[in-house]
Protein backbone atom coordinates (compact mmCIF):
# COMPACT_ATOMS: atom_id res chain seq x y z
CA UNK A 1 0.00 0.00 0.00
CA UNK A 2 1.28 3.46 -0.89
CA UNK A 3 2.20 5.56 2.18
CA UNK A 4 0.12 8.35 0.73
CA UNK A 5 -2.95 6.07 0.61
CA UNK A 6 -2.40 4.95 4.17
CA UNK A 7 -2.10 8.53 5.39
CA UNK A 8 -5.29 9.47 3.60
CA UNK A 9 -7.22 6.49 4.99
CA UNK A 10 -5.86 7.02 8.48
CA UNK A 11 -6.87 10.70 8.50
CA UNK A 12 -10.23 9.87 6.91
CA UNK A 13 -11.22 7.40 9.64
CA UNK A 14 -9.91 9.63 12.40
CA UNK A 15 -12.09 12.49 11.15
CA UNK A 16 -15.16 10.36 10.58
CA UNK A 17 -15.14 8.14 13.66
CA UNK A 18 -12.19 9.00 15.88
CA UNK A 19 -10.56 5.66 15.06
CA UNK A 20 -6.79 5.89 15.38
CA UNK A 21 -5.15 3.68 12.79
CA UNK A 22 -1.44 3.17 13.34
CA UNK A 23 0.85 1.65 10.73
CA UNK A 24 0.96 -1.63 12.64
CA UNK A 25 -2.79 -1.82 12.18
CA UNK A 26 -2.67 -1.15 8.44
CA UNK A 27 -3.63 -4.77 7.78
CA UNK A 28 -7.10 -3.93 9.14
CA UNK A 29 -7.69 -1.81 6.05
CA UNK A 30 -7.17 -4.85 3.87
CA UNK A 31 -9.18 -7.31 5.97
CA UNK A 32 -12.10 -5.04 6.73
CA UNK A 33 -12.36 -2.98 3.56
CA UNK A 34 -11.86 -5.61 0.87
CA UNK A 35 -15.39 -7.00 1.40
CA UNK A 36 -16.72 -3.47 0.82
CA UNK A 37 -14.53 -3.07 -2.27
CA UNK A 38 -15.76 -6.36 -3.73
CA UNK A 39 -19.37 -5.41 -3.07
CA UNK A 40 -18.77 -2.23 -5.06
CA UNK A 41 -17.10 -4.11 -7.91
CA UNK A 42 -13.68 -2.63 -7.16
CA UNK A 43 -10.66 -4.84 -7.60
CA UNK A 44 -8.29 -3.58 -4.95
CA UNK A 45 -7.84 -1.50 -1.84
CA UNK A 46 -6.11 1.12 -4.01
CA UNK A 47 -9.23 1.46 -6.15
CA UNK A 48 -11.40 1.73 -3.07
CA UNK A 49 -9.25 4.43 -1.51
CA UNK A 50 -9.27 6.29 -4.83
CA UNK A 51 -13.07 6.22 -4.70
CA UNK A 52 -12.97 7.44 -1.10
CA UNK A 53 -10.74 10.34 -2.18
CA UNK A 54 -13.28 11.39 -4.78
CA UNK A 55 -15.71 11.43 -1.87
CA UNK A 56 -18.89 11.78 -3.88
CA UNK A 57 -20.41 8.42 -2.98
CA UNK A 58 -21.76 9.08 0.50
CA UNK A 59 -23.04 5.51 0.79
CA UNK A 60 -19.54 4.22 0.16
CA UNK A 61 -18.05 6.60 2.73
CA UNK A 62 -20.54 5.39 5.29
CA UNK A 63 -19.96 1.73 4.47
CA UNK A 64 -16.18 1.92 4.80
CA UNK A 65 -16.54 3.76 8.12
CA UNK A 66 -18.90 1.10 9.44
CA UNK A 67 -16.67 -1.71 8.24
CA UNK A 68 -13.66 -0.23 10.04
CA UNK A 69 -15.42 0.43 13.34
CA UNK A 70 -17.27 -2.83 13.86
CA UNK A 71 -16.35 -4.45 17.13
CA UNK A 72 -17.18 -7.79 18.55
CA UNK A 73 -19.61 -7.93 21.37
CA UNK A 74 -21.18 -10.55 23.56
CA UNK A 75 -23.74 -10.90 26.31
CA UNK A 76 -22.58 -10.01 29.83
CA UNK A 77 -19.12 -9.28 28.47
CA UNK A 78 -16.51 -9.44 31.27
CA UNK A 79 -19.42 -10.25 33.67
CA UNK A 80 -17.96 -8.13 36.56
CA UNK A 81 -19.42 -4.81 35.39
CA UNK A 82 -22.84 -6.41 35.15
CA UNK A 83 -22.56 -7.85 38.66
CA UNK A 84 -21.58 -4.37 39.86
CA UNK A 85 -24.52 -2.85 38.02
CA UNK A 86 -26.93 -5.31 39.60
CA UNK A 87 -25.50 -5.45 43.12
CA UNK A 88 -24.09 -1.97 43.69
CA UNK A 89 -25.20 0.60 41.13
CA UNK A 90 -28.86 -0.38 40.89
CA UNK A 91 -29.41 -0.46 44.69
CA UNK A 92 -27.72 2.94 44.96
CA UNK A 93 -30.13 4.49 42.46
CA UNK A 94 -33.10 2.63 43.89
CA UNK A 95 -32.43 4.70 46.97
CA UNK A 96 -31.40 8.04 45.50
CA UNK A 97 -34.14 8.06 42.85
CA UNK A 98 -36.84 6.63 45.11
CA UNK A 99 -39.12 9.62 44.67
CA UNK A 100 -38.43 10.17 40.99
CA UNK A 101 -38.63 6.47 40.09
CA UNK A 102 -36.77 6.92 36.82
CA UNK A 103 -33.39 5.76 35.64
CA UNK A 104 -31.79 6.39 32.28
CA UNK A 105 -28.92 4.22 31.10
CA UNK A 106 -26.88 4.75 27.97
CA UNK A 107 -24.76 2.15 26.19
CA UNK A 108 -22.41 4.13 23.97
CA UNK A 109 -21.15 2.22 20.93
CA UNK A 110 -23.39 -0.73 21.70
CA UNK A 111 -22.56 -2.64 18.51
CA UNK A 112 -25.19 -5.36 17.90
CA UNK A 113 -27.02 -4.77 21.17
CA UNK A 114 -25.71 -7.44 23.55
CA UNK A 115 -24.73 -4.95 26.25
CA UNK A 116 -28.05 -3.07 26.42
CA UNK A 117 -29.98 -6.34 26.28
CA UNK A 118 -27.83 -7.76 29.09
CA UNK A 119 -28.80 -4.73 31.18
CA UNK A 120 -32.44 -5.13 30.14
CA UNK A 121 -32.36 -8.75 31.35
CA UNK A 122 -30.89 -7.65 34.68
CA UNK A 123 -33.57 -5.00 35.08
CA UNK A 124 -36.25 -7.52 34.18
CA UNK A 125 -34.88 -9.97 36.75
CA UNK A 126 -35.05 -7.12 39.28
CA UNK A 127 -38.58 -6.20 38.19
CA UNK A 128 -40.03 -6.61 41.67
CA UNK A 129 -37.79 -3.89 43.08
CA UNK A 130 -38.33 -1.67 40.04
CA UNK A 131 -42.12 -1.86 40.02
CA UNK A 132 -43.62 1.49 39.07
CA UNK A 133 -40.32 2.83 37.71
CA UNK A 134 -39.99 4.43 34.32
CA UNK A 135 -36.58 3.27 33.16
CA UNK A 136 -35.00 3.65 29.81
CA UNK A 137 -31.98 2.07 28.20
CA UNK A 138 -30.59 3.82 25.15
CA UNK A 139 -28.15 2.04 22.84
CA UNK A 140 -26.23 3.96 20.22
CA UNK A 141 -23.74 2.95 17.58
CA UNK A 142 -22.07 4.67 14.67
CA UNK A 143 -23.08 1.86 12.34
CA UNK A 144 -26.60 1.79 10.91
CA UNK A 145 -26.11 -1.89 10.16
CA UNK A 146 -25.33 -2.63 13.82
CA UNK A 147 -28.26 -0.52 15.02
CA UNK A 148 -30.58 -2.45 12.70
CA UNK A 149 -29.24 -5.76 14.00
CA UNK A 150 -29.57 -4.62 17.59
CA UNK A 151 -33.17 -3.51 17.02
CA UNK A 152 -34.06 -6.86 15.46
CA UNK A 153 -32.54 -8.65 18.46
CA UNK A 154 -31.65 -11.66 16.31
CA UNK A 155 -28.50 -13.60 17.17
CA UNK A 156 -26.73 -16.65 15.83
CA UNK A 157 -26.28 -19.79 17.89
CA UNK A 158 -22.64 -18.81 18.29
CA UNK A 159 -23.53 -15.36 19.63
CA UNK A 160 -26.06 -16.60 22.20
CA UNK A 161 -23.49 -19.03 23.59
CA UNK A 162 -20.98 -16.34 24.45
CA UNK A 163 -21.69 -15.04 27.93
CA UNK A 164 -25.42 -15.73 28.08
CA UNK A 165 -26.39 -18.20 30.83
CA UNK A 166 -28.55 -20.99 29.42
CA UNK A 167 -31.37 -20.21 31.87
CA UNK A 168 -31.62 -16.68 30.45
CA UNK A 169 -31.57 -18.01 26.88
CA UNK A 170 -34.53 -20.26 27.64
CA UNK A 171 -36.34 -17.52 29.51
CA UNK A 172 -35.89 -14.57 27.17
CA UNK A 173 -35.20 -15.92 23.69
CA UNK A 174 -37.21 -17.68 21.02
CA UNK A 175 -35.81 -19.76 18.25
CA UNK A 176 -36.43 -18.30 14.80
CA UNK A 177 -35.09 -20.76 12.26
CA UNK A 178 -31.34 -20.95 12.83
CA UNK A 179 -31.35 -17.75 14.85
CA UNK A 180 -32.43 -16.75 18.34
CA UNK A 181 -34.55 -13.66 18.93
CA UNK A 182 -34.76 -11.81 22.21
CA UNK A 183 -38.29 -11.37 23.56
CA UNK A 184 -40.31 -8.39 22.28
CA UNK A 185 -40.84 -7.06 25.82
CA UNK A 186 -37.06 -6.81 26.30
CA UNK A 187 -36.63 -5.24 22.89
CA UNK A 188 -39.15 -2.62 24.00
CA UNK A 189 -36.95 -1.75 26.99
CA UNK A 190 -34.13 -0.50 24.78
CA UNK A 191 -34.26 2.41 22.39
CA UNK A 192 -31.59 2.25 19.68
CA UNK A 193 -30.23 5.18 17.76
CA UNK A 194 -27.49 5.71 15.23
CA UNK A 195 -25.03 8.15 16.79
CA UNK A 196 -21.45 9.18 16.26
CA UNK A 197 -19.66 9.88 19.55
CA UNK A 198 -17.66 12.67 17.91
CA UNK A 199 -20.78 14.69 17.23
CA UNK A 200 -22.81 16.80 19.66
CA UNK A 201 -24.39 14.28 22.02
CA UNK A 202 -26.80 16.59 23.83
CA UNK A 203 -29.75 15.43 21.76
CA UNK A 204 -29.63 12.11 23.61
CA UNK A 205 -30.77 13.70 26.87
CA UNK A 206 -29.39 13.04 30.33
CA UNK A 207 -28.17 9.73 31.75
CA UNK A 208 -27.67 8.46 35.28
CA UNK A 209 -25.48 5.59 34.11
CA UNK A 210 -23.27 5.43 31.03
CA UNK A 211 -21.58 2.33 29.68
CA UNK A 212 -18.75 3.35 27.37
CA UNK A 213 -16.64 0.21 27.40
CA UNK A 214 -13.86 -0.65 24.98
CA UNK A 215 -14.61 2.38 22.85
CA UNK A 216 -12.12 4.99 24.01
CA UNK A 217 -9.21 2.65 23.33
CA UNK A 218 -9.67 3.39 19.64
CA UNK A 219 -9.30 7.14 20.16
CA UNK A 220 -6.30 9.38 20.75
CA UNK A 221 -6.13 11.25 24.07
CA UNK A 222 -7.56 14.48 22.75
CA UNK A 223 -10.60 12.69 21.36
CA UNK A 224 -10.99 10.63 24.54
CA UNK A 225 -11.02 13.85 26.57
CA UNK A 226 -13.65 15.39 24.32
CA UNK A 227 -15.93 12.37 24.53
CA UNK A 228 -15.54 12.16 28.32
CA UNK A 229 -16.34 15.87 28.67
CA UNK A 230 -19.49 15.36 26.63
CA UNK A 231 -20.52 12.35 28.73
CA UNK A 232 -20.02 14.42 31.88
CA UNK A 233 -22.28 17.07 30.39
CA UNK A 234 -25.08 14.51 30.07
CA UNK A 235 -24.80 13.33 33.68
CA UNK A 236 -26.09 14.45 37.05
CA UNK A 237 -23.41 14.90 39.73
CA UNK A 238 -24.12 11.43 41.13
CA UNK A 239 -23.96 9.71 37.74
CA UNK A 240 -21.82 6.63 37.14
CA UNK A 241 -19.62 5.86 34.15
CA UNK A 242 -18.50 2.33 33.23
CA UNK A 243 -15.31 2.04 31.19
CA UNK A 244 -13.63 -1.09 29.79
CA UNK A 245 -11.07 -3.03 31.79
CA UNK A 246 -8.12 -1.61 29.85
CA UNK A 247 -9.36 1.98 29.95
CA UNK A 248 -8.90 4.84 32.39
CA UNK A 249 -9.62 8.54 32.76
CA UNK A 250 -6.38 9.20 34.63
CA UNK A 251 -4.22 11.70 32.82
CA UNK A 252 -6.88 12.14 30.16
CA UNK A 253 -9.81 13.91 31.75
CA UNK A 254 -10.40 15.62 35.08
CA UNK A 255 -14.16 15.39 34.71
CA UNK A 256 -14.17 11.87 36.15
CA UNK A 257 -12.39 9.98 38.89
CA UNK A 258 -12.33 6.27 39.73
CA UNK A 259 -14.81 5.09 42.35
CA UNK A 260 -12.76 3.47 45.11
CA UNK A 261 -13.05 -0.32 45.25
CA UNK A 262 -15.30 -0.49 42.19
CA UNK A 263 -13.04 -1.38 39.31
CA UNK A 264 -13.98 0.14 35.98
CA UNK A 265 -16.49 2.56 37.54
CA UNK A 266 -16.02 6.33 37.51
CA UNK A 267 -17.87 9.26 38.99
CA UNK A 268 -17.88 12.95 38.17
CA UNK A 269 -15.32 15.17 39.89
CA UNK A 270 -16.08 18.60 41.30
CA UNK A 271 -15.13 20.17 38.02
CA UNK A 272 -18.33 21.40 36.42
CA UNK A 273 -18.98 20.97 32.73
CA UNK A 274 -19.48 24.12 30.64
CA UNK A 275 -22.81 25.79 31.38
CA UNK A 276 -24.33 25.07 28.00
CA UNK A 277 -23.87 21.31 28.22
CA UNK A 278 -25.07 21.14 31.82
CA UNK A 279 -28.25 23.02 31.08
CA UNK A 280 -29.08 20.88 28.07
CA UNK A 281 -28.35 17.65 29.88
CA UNK A 282 -31.24 18.37 32.19
CA UNK A 283 -33.65 18.25 29.29
CA UNK A 284 -33.83 14.49 29.15
CA UNK A 285 -34.26 14.01 32.88
CA UNK A 286 -37.34 15.86 34.01
CA UNK A 287 -37.06 16.81 37.66
CA UNK A 288 -33.31 16.24 37.75
Amino acid sequence: MKPDDFDFASQFFKDRSGLVLTREKAYLLESRLMPVARKKGLKSLEELIAAMRVGRDSVLLREVTEAMTINESFFFRDIKPFDLFRNTVLPRFLQSRASKKALRVWCAACSSGQEPYSLAMIMREEAARLAGWRNEIVGTDISSEMVAKAKAGLYSQFEVQRGLPIQLLVKYFKKEGDLWQIDASLRAMVRYREYNLLTDLRGLGGFDVVFCRNVLIYFDNETKAKVLAQIRGLMPDDGILFLGGAETVLGISDYFKPIPDLRGLYMPTDRKPAAGTAALSQAGTPGA
Binding site: F74, Q161, R162
Partner: peptide
Amino acid sequence: EIIQAKFAQ
Protein backbone atom coordinates in the same frame (compact mmCIF):
# COMPACT_ATOMS: atom_id res chain seq x y z
CA GLU B 1 -14.05 -20.09 23.12
CA ILE B 2 -17.56 -21.38 23.85
CA ILE B 3 -16.33 -24.11 26.20
CA GLN B 4 -14.18 -21.59 28.01
CA ALA B 5 -17.04 -19.08 28.28
CA LYS B 6 -19.51 -21.68 29.56
CA PHE B 7 -17.09 -23.21 32.05
CA ALA B 8 -16.23 -19.73 33.34
CA GLN B 9 -19.95 -18.96 33.71
